[in-house]
Simulated assay, not measured.
Amino acid sequence: MNRIGNGLLVAMAITWSGMVFSAVQNLPQPVFSGQDGEQAAADNAASPAPAEQAAPASTEAETAAKAEEQALPSGIGWKLVRSLEMGDSGKFVHMVLIEKGRQADKTIYSSAIHRLCAKEKEFCRIRFWVQSYLIPEKVSLTLEQQKTQQADHLFNRAAGIHRTLWACTVDSTSESCIQ
Rank of each mutant, 00 (worst) to 15 (best):
F155S: 02
A11L: 12
P30F: 01
V24N: 03
F32R: 01
I14V: 15
A40H: 08
M12S: 15
L134A: 07
E68V: 10
N156P: 07
E62S: 11
Q179T: 02
P73L: 03
L8Q: 14
S176R: 13
R127S: 06
E85Q: 13
A71M: 00
K79E: 06
A55D: 10
P56W: 03
K91T: 04
T169D: 12
S83L: 01
E99P: 05
A167K: 07
A54D: 09
A151N: 11
S47V: 12
K138R: 07
V24A: 01
A65V: 00
A13W: 10
L154W: 05
S74G: 12
E99K: 11
I178N: 02
K100C: 03
H114Y: 10
A40M: 05
D88S: 07
A118R: 15
G75M: 08
M12Q: 15
E60D: 06
V31K: 13
A67F: 06
R115Y: 12
L134K: 11
S33W: 00
A118W: 15
G90T: 06
Q131R: 06
L165D: 12
R3E: 03
C117H: 09
Q150W: 04
L116N: 05
E99Q: 11
A167R: 06
S132Y: 06
A51V: 10
S111Q: 08
L97R: 00
L72R: 06
C177N: 00
S176K: 14
M19T: 05
N2D: 09
P30S: 04
G87R: 05
T107D: 10
K119V: 06
Q39P: 00
L8I: 13
I4G: 13
N26T: 07
V31C: 01
F128H: 08
A61C: 00
A71E: 03
G37K: 05
S22I: 02
A23M: 14
G5H: 14
G160E: 07
I108P: 09
E137V: 03
Q179C: 05
V20R: 15
D171K: 10
P73H: 05
T142L: 02
V31W: 10
R163W: 07
T164G: 01
K121S: 14
C168D: 07
